[in-house]
Design a protein around this nucleic acid. Sequence first.
DNA 1: TCAAAAGTGTTCGGGCTACACCCATGC
DNA 2: GCATGGGTGTAGCCCGAACACTTTTGA
Lengths: 230, 230
Amino acid sequence: MDGPLDTRVTVRSAAATHTADCVVFGYAEGELRVLLVRRAVEPFLGHWVLPGGAMAETERLEETARRVLLELVGVRNLYLQQVATYSAPDRHPVRRVVTTSYYALVRPEQHQPTALGYLSEVRWFPLSEVPPLGFDHSTLLADAHARLILHLRTRPLAFDLLPERFTLTEAQGVYEEILGEGLDRRNFRRKLQTYDFLIETEEKRRGVRGGPVLYRVHVDRLRAQLQKNT
Amino acid sequence: MDGPLDTRVTVRSAAATHTADCVVFGYAEGELRVLLVRRAVEPFLGHWVLPGGAMAETERLEETARRVLLELVGVRNLYLQQVATYSAPDRHPVRRVVTTSYYALVRPEQHQPTALGYLSEVRWFPLSEVPPLGFDHSTLLADAHARLILHLRTRPLAFDLLPERFTLTEAQGVYEEILGEGLDRRNFRRKLQTYDFLIETEEKRRGVRGGPVLYRVHVDRLRAQLQKNT
DNA sequence: TCAAAAGTGTTCGGGCTACACCCATGC
DNA sequence: GCATGGGTGTAGCCCGAACACTTTTGA
């Protein structure tokens, strides 16, 4: 309660480090992917884990998460949602670390992630090829994905993963990849046509049969829509 | 990320106290209520706040929350869900405190809350009569209530707030109080009749016109149901 | 020209909503 | 006995699910 400890039980307050870890989702080549980093230091040297960093003195956790993402993929202003906080005393083998997880949606083609600091590698993994992660990060990833599915069912989030111009079939691919299930093309398109933030452009995608029409989003309307069902 | 800090930005890791604060909901006399405590120490001396406590060295935050609830209302094994984590650097006027909030559902008639330690008073407040709270607890309360509404729409949570025997009208009252809207009696009853964990007893409620029949829940079936849509 | 993907309407069923009358009990 | 709340069924609506053929374009 932000106050002195209760006196009935003698507890020593834990001086834990607090980190923000990011589950960064991206969509490329028809697959939902997640950004992982490889550790170059112990513990879990050589393991793949979620990118993250320690909360600084004057930061909120969300700011920590944004700072990490800026450093890692050089992107600001992306869609970021807190998922949960993990506090098992032994979740870090060396010292006490409490972690709050966030999920983020980015456009992979716009950003080249760079390994830095204590990392040896950064890579996009298709969700189905993610190896067992260090710490309890497999759990964080699963929880974040579950939360994303939940959110996607009530909010038009997929467009934060798509490039500026996209076809409806590509949009459907994003939905199918996140939800992990196939969707009916006509039902899907009818649903999208109810969104006032979708704008049909004059262009068609070249190099693909059928000559699909390209769409773009009216950014302000999309933002308004997203705020409505927060 | 549970690792050394990134090197590109020099951050000093914040040694924050971490607390678990509880938004304890109860239903009594036809009203949804929340359990608040009054502080007997600075800061916010005399203010009403959410009950909570600092995470101990060997505890997970959920255990902290359960410990607080055990001490405060003497109840184990209640329905407890993590809501969110709050980390604004200035949310506590004296020192840095990060707080993770939980909501809990209890049966007020079974427990007499007791003020202890640094508290001068403990009281159930009807949700509509909650005063402005100390710290940022008004926000935590609002967020927890919003989360409860969300959960109630997909899970049969109301029965964790009702006494062992209850009428369908009483159950409807709980739903209406949480959702903040009136429900159609017949539609509501039809919906409840689809739940296999509701058991009609032989008894009727005495002292109320109409002689409504009392129901109880099949605890195992309810637990099974709740786990299904976690 | 043919193979592949884009594009398009209608029907069906289930679940939610709205609505009115009789019955049991307390006062 | 009468006022209050308990108990019950049906019809419309909306949304999501299922489903097949024509058009466009690349190869």
